[in-house]
Amino acid sequence: MRTYTRPMAGWWRRNPFYLWYMLREASCVFITAYALILLWGLARLSQGKPQFEAWLASLASPVSIAFHAIALLLVLYHAWTWFKVMPRTMPFVRIGGWRVPDGFIVAFAFAGSIVLSGALLIAVWRL
C-alpha cells in the first residue's frame, strides 16, 4: 500500500489556534531574557553603588523600556494561559462530595495572582 505523508513544515501558520500557542511559547524567550537582566543587576549590585546605579540607568533607555513593555504583555499572556489550563493539570478537586468546577479553580488562581502581585507592589512602593 503506497501512502502519501504530508509535510509538517509551517504547520503553526495554518490555524489561528496554533498561532496563539506559538505566542504563548514565545513568552519563554522574554522570561529568560528578563531573568538574565535580573542576574546582571545582581552582579552590578554586588560590585557597589555606582555600578548598580549604572545598571538602573541602562534600564531607563528606550530599548530597555520597550523590551520590558513587550515582556510585560507576553508574560501577562503566559499567566492568562497558565491559569486557564491549570484545572486540566490536576485531578478533579472535590470538597465533600462536590466537584469544584474548573472555572472556580481558574478564578481562585487569578485571585491569588492579583493578591500576591498587589502585596508585592505595596511592599516595594510603601514599605
Binding site: 523600556i65 503566559h78 491559569f83
Partner: peptide, 12 residues
C-alpha cells in the same frame, strides 16, 4: 504567572 508581570512592571 503569579508575580512575573508585576515584577517586570516594577524592575523594568
Amino acid at each position: 504567572a503569579l508575580i512575573g508581570p508585576m515584577l517586570i512592571l516594577i524592575t523594568g
